[in-house]
């Protein structure tokens, strides 16, 4: 079977400006992701995992190599993104934000509101549909961000540390919500995070990246059966074993990137 996403020897070099040296963000990343797979990408900060996602979203171009998403038969959009700070437009109400992707695709106002309403209700935001983002808490904003992505209904969902800015409790709740949604839709998802627990809770597979320049170090298949519950998962002995395995690989990288930073400092 051909993979849904095929990433082939991606290399990204940011050209230097003035006295700054050129920076190599990604150094030959190759990855194949199957249709309907939920892959989590974990790595130390600045390892280029966000760059990888932005290339998939067409917000950036690689220096060499390519990343191809194979379209399916449907006319659904190829990819959609969920941003770290939710990225809601402050000038639109929650309902307008959620329906934004459909608006761009030329869906009639009545239909796009009906479709948006479905996901707004699923996310428990019906009371806030006509509120502006500034009136919502961070957690609710990210719920609206998820509703926007699911209303857009892309073939591939790209998620860039969507829960990174939330407190631990809200984060757990939203992880459970995302697992629920994914059970319903079974989309291909690339989920970038720096939290190992989050990656093990959500992913079918966890991909570990090295410190800059980013390379793929290691992959872990996550064995837990679905549907999953974020809390009971944590009591599973395999969870701690996997955590230890992943941490063992990452630890060296984190320390390596710290020493590199210290050496670069004047």
């Amino acid at each position: 079977m051909t993979p849904k996403i095929n990433i082939d020897s991606l290399q990204v070099i940011y050209p230097g400006r003035g006295r700054n040296m050129p920076v190599e963000a990604l150094a030959g990343v190759s990855l194949a992701i199957a249709d309907g797979e939920l892959v989590c990408v974990v790595g130390p900060s600045g390892c280029g995992k966000t760059t990888l996602l932005r290339i998939l979203a067409d917000l950036e171009q690689p220096t060499t190599g390519q990343a191809i998403i194979a379209p399916d038969e449907s006319n659904r959009p190829l990819k959609g993104m969920v941003f770290q700070g939710a990225g809601l437009f402050p000038w639109m109400t929650v309902a307008q934000n959620v329906a934004y992707g459909l608006q761009l695709r030329g869906v009639a106002p009545r239909e796009r509101l009906t479709r948006a309403q479905h996901w707004i209700t699923t996310m428990g935001l019906e009371r806030f549909a006509q509120s502006y983002p500034a009136q919502l808490s961070g957690g609710m904003q990210q719920r609206a961000g998820l509703a926007r992505a699911f209303t857009y209904d892309p073939q591939v969902l790209l998620m860039d540390e969507p829960f990174g800015a939330l407190d631990a409790q809200t984060r757990l709740i939203l992880q459970a919500t995302l697992l629920d949604l994914w059970e319903q839709a079974r989309k291909t998802v690339v989920f970038v995070t720096h939290s190992i627990e989050e990656a093990l809770t959500l992913g079918d597979r966890v991909v570990l990246m090295s410190a800059r320049p980013g390379r793929i170090l290691h992959e872990v298949m996550v064995p837990f059966a679905r549907p999953r519950d974020p809390i009971t998962l944590r009591t599973d002995p395999r969870f701690s074993a996997l955590f230890a395995e992943v941490w063992g690989v990452l630890r060296a990288e984190v320390e390596h990137s710290r020493t590199a930073e210290l050496e670069m400092a004047p």
């Binding site: 979203a57 917000l59 934004y100 761009l104």
Partner: peptide, 21 residues
């Protein structure tokens, strides 16, 4: 610029970028 990126990630064309962002 972040807002423009969000719009582009939803497939906004230049005129969409103007009118909606």
């Amino acid at each position: 610029n972040h807002y423009f990126e969000v719009a582009r990630s939803f497939g906004a064309r230049p005129r969409d970028l103007f009118w909606t962002v």
